[in-house]
Design a protein around this nucleic acid. Structure first.
Lengths: 251, 251
DNA sequence: TTGGAAGAAATTGTGTACAATCCTTGAATG
DNA sequence: CATTCAAGGATTGTACACAATTTCTTCCAA
């Protein structure tokens, strides 16, 4: 994979234009390592980084014009959020959640996020509502130009922004990790053809926020997540024999 | 603080005798850095490491006969679990949760742990019940010998073991972080004199597990956590002007 | 005495060299 | 032909040296 091109030319530039609008919750002091974390997290949210991919320290370092030390620090931080799995002496791989992982992640989301939505409903300012609407709009536009990856990224970040609005840092950290893992899960177990891409849950949720109706927001979020989970194809085995697939793809 | 003595002589030996019985959820490959993480986490759970303490990389390294690189790795991992706070160019300090943090942590615990208790009730084997009873017994003995720190450690680990029994890795990671932060919160905001140390919640909980009564377990856990939270003295400001206090203490 | 500035000390941040480990390749042997 | 073993290459793990930054100390002047 041509990391250099990926980070330097088109994609990253697009990223800085994204109204991401949330504080990344990596426990790193500001610096180059944190930058790498954020950009790799974004790449995962956009499905440009696929589950199972190898992330060599040197490769990552070169891609972001940093040394291996910095890349190593970033990869360790990513490992702590569950985005990356490391094996002793074998390096870091983009996490490849199992069916069981997927079940656990969505179970946790169904428990936690409705509660967060309730909090957010009580706190959302007009500016917050505008933020959320902007995300919905951006997702819609991305879908119209067939950029499914970017649409999914906006969709995921929408949930992170809600946690941000709720102003609950503990929940925020948890949700950010869960959302990113969900992105990996969707990359593995979501069948684009079967499911209609758009539903109006996000719009309805913003409406509930506008009405400051916490109970409604909670219930909408709950149902939304259950639908999302139900839309996954969790019977499929987690991708055909990864090692062979990688060989065929020439990686 | 005499780290060397602390880690090398009496305390650590006692620790390895503890039937901790849970997998630490640090995302580090096995190695010296992971060891440091576990031992520092244990020290926090035992209240030997107080909130606000400075953790110098070199100092930590020397204490565990490791180099600064290893210590640095460990401190970064601890930072990711919220046990330690780092400031750029200023190093790592044992986290000092604010009153607001305490509220958030316990709110999250009240949401998540009853659910975990429900899961655990459905899965607890006879061996698991024995594990839990052993913890209760150990806590009781520690209290009788006036070792409040160790008693609190057993009490906290009891909750981690329940998450372990539930067999839900996502919840487990979350809970481990919340428990450790709770330990810091209790160190800051708990008035030993006001509250009776022992209550029977843990015993009742094990009874519910034995009966495989998930609903009862959920409710007992919920009430237990609310009581715990209510027992905190959250009006007190988070320790008198830390810098002055440290000076007076000769730190 | 107070305030500030400059230098010294201590601590963290980063790059790099080397050691340790794992995987691959290829050949020898049963 | 399958299997085992060894050598080589590639990658991660660790230590250490140096740079950058902050903090502490000291000294001088108002």
């Amino acid at each position: 994979m041509d990391w250099k091109a990926m980070s330097a030319s088109q994609n990253i530039v697009d990223f800085s234009a994204l109204p991401l609008g949330f504080d990344p919750s990596f426990s790193l002091p500001p610096g180059p390592a944190l930058n790498i974390c954020v950009q790799l997290q974004n790449a995962i949210l956009e499905h440009r980084l696929r589950p199972g991919m190898k992330l060599t320290e040197e490769e990552v370092g070169e891609s972001f014009n940093s040394s291996r030390s910095i890349a190593r620090t970033a990869l360790q931080a990513l490992a702590h959020t569950g985005l990356v799995q490391t094996r002793k002496n074998r390096g870091a791989y983009v996490a490849k959640p199992t069916v069981e992982d997927a079940r656990e992640v969505f179970e946790a989301r169904v428990l936690i996020e409705p509660e967060i939505a309730w909090h957010a409903a009580g706190k959302a300012s007009d500016k917050d509502l505008k933020r959320l609407e902007a995300h919905i709009e951006a997702e819609h536009l991305a879908l119209k130009s067939n950029d499914v990856g970017k649409a999914l990224a906006y969709s995921g970040i929408f949930h992170i922004v809600i946690a941000d609005i709720a102003g609950h840092s503990v929940y925020s950290n948890i949700v950010q990790s869960l959302i990113t893992q969900s992105s990996l899960i969707i990359a593995l177990y979501w069948n684009h053809l079967e499911t209609a891409c758009e539903d109006h849950s996000h719009n309805i949720l913003v409406d509930a926020f506008r009405d400051k109706d916490g109970d409604a927001a909670r219930e909408i979020m709950r149902k939304h997540l259950l639908d999302l989970h139900a839309g996954l194809n969790l019977k499929r085995k987690p991708e055909t024999d990864q090692s062979l697939a990688q060989v065929l793809a020439g990686i």
